[in-house]
Computed example of a mutant assay.
Amino acid sequence: MIELLHTVPLFSRLNMNQLESISGICTKKSFKTGTVLFHEKELGSVFYIVHSGSVKIYTAGSTGEEKILSLMKPGDSFGELSLIDGKPRSATARTLEDSVLISISGQDFITLLKTHFDISLGIMQELSTRLRESNQHVHDLTFLDARSRVIRSLITLANKNGIRTGSTITIKMTLNYDEVSQMAGVQKPILIQVIRELQEKQIITMPGHEMKLDLAKLRA
């Protein structure tokens, strides 16, 4: 467990003794694809860290339509807001593929923040990053046209979840077209139209369940 924790950015600044104390309050568990970890508006009791796999964080409207807020990859953490402010969950979390997660109970998590400033600082930095991303998303929806929003969303997915080789970023596509269109804030037909355009220009290729984004061609 200690070696696993050391790979998590949130704990990367901690020493071995600190990691040992944290490992004692952690639980590692495997989850199947499509498992709901918690629902929007329910009280929070657990903090999660993704060890492997991926998790989508989303809200649902009255008609059942989903809005994806973020995609969590290995090393990412989530579920802390409800534990910190004591209010119900602001979104739902569901695994996108078979995943292994590390969990810490709410009470142990709060104690962790009180005793380890490095972790508290890491949480604040993560929340600040999410706030900046939310502000950028609002800006995009307000000022960018549909095509630009799709391209920006694909670049964001690539930067956060892809593997870069030279000017090409390879992304394992755990999201379907409906989910990507929700992230971009466009209708699915528009998303498909833009992706076909990018494929024709060989800016993106989609072998199997992957998407390859050629940054050099995109800049050109």
Rank of each mutant, 00 (worst) to 15 (best):
L19T: 05
E97L: 11
K212V: 04
L144M: 13
P88L: 02
G122F: 01
K217Y: 03
I49L: 14
R196T: 14
L71D: 04
R130Q: 13
L83A: 02
G79M: 04
G61Q: 10
G53N: 05
S167E: 14
Q202P: 03
S52I: 06
E126W: 05
V150W: 05
S120M: 09
L127W: 06
K114R: 14
I203P: 05
R13H: 09
A93Y: 01
I155K: 11
F31T: 01
I2S: 08
I102H: 02
F78Y: 01
R94I: 14
L113M: 09
I57W: 00
R130G: 05
H139Q: 14
R130Y: 07
S153F: 04
S82C: 02
G75C: 04
I123Q: 02
N135P: 00
T59S: 13
V150T: 03
D140C: 05
D178G: 10
H137R: 15
T156F: 08
M16V: 10
I57E: 06
L131Y: 13
I104D: 01
K160R: 15
L213Y: 00
F78M: 01
Q187G: 10
S82V: 00
E133H: 09
Y58D: 08
L37F: 05
N161W: 08
P9C: 11
I163C: 07
E97Q: 15
I195H: 01
E197A: 13
Q199T: 13
I102M: 12
T115Q: 13
T174R: 12
L83P: 00
T95E: 06
K172T: 07
S153T: 15
N15S: 12
R130S: 07
E66K: 12
I102F: 07
M206E: 11
G208C: 03
Q125T: 07
A93Q: 07
